[in-house]
Amino acid sequence: MLLQIDFKSGKPVYLQLVDQIRYAAASGGLNPGEPLPSIRPLAEELRLNRNTVAKAYSELENQGIIETIPGKGCFLKANHSPFTKQVKDKLLAAEIDEAVVMAHHLQVDREKFLGLVKERLDYFERKTQGNE
């Protein structure tokens, strides 16, 4: 898993870390049970405030994606969704809505959009399998 920060994206730095780790977890860049980099070396490497990295990790912990084992570090959880089906649907719908709005503005029609969704799902599946 390689992390990269873009100060020009306008997204708060800790959220960039959260998103990239979530992405890695979904695409097999990080496997369940695998350790995340420790806060200090990661902060040094990215030259980020240590508190920013700690904030990202505690956010990921709140979201139930990683867990901290005292004295050992942070690890990706195996089944990392603590949410009920309704909450899952609602969270996902909000993200999909953004993509739908974007598709509308880019004049991508329904068929093309659905095709792209399938293609992306396949892509993530292949990546995860390739990593196992």
């Binding site: 806060i39 200090r40 070396p41 902060a43 040094e44 030259r47 980020l48 405030n49 240590r50 508190n51």
Partner: peptide, 8 residues
């Protein structure tokens, strides 16, 4: 060093 040795 400021991040690592000092801040942590």
């Amino acid at each position: 060093t400021v991040i690592g040795a000092y801040q942590s």
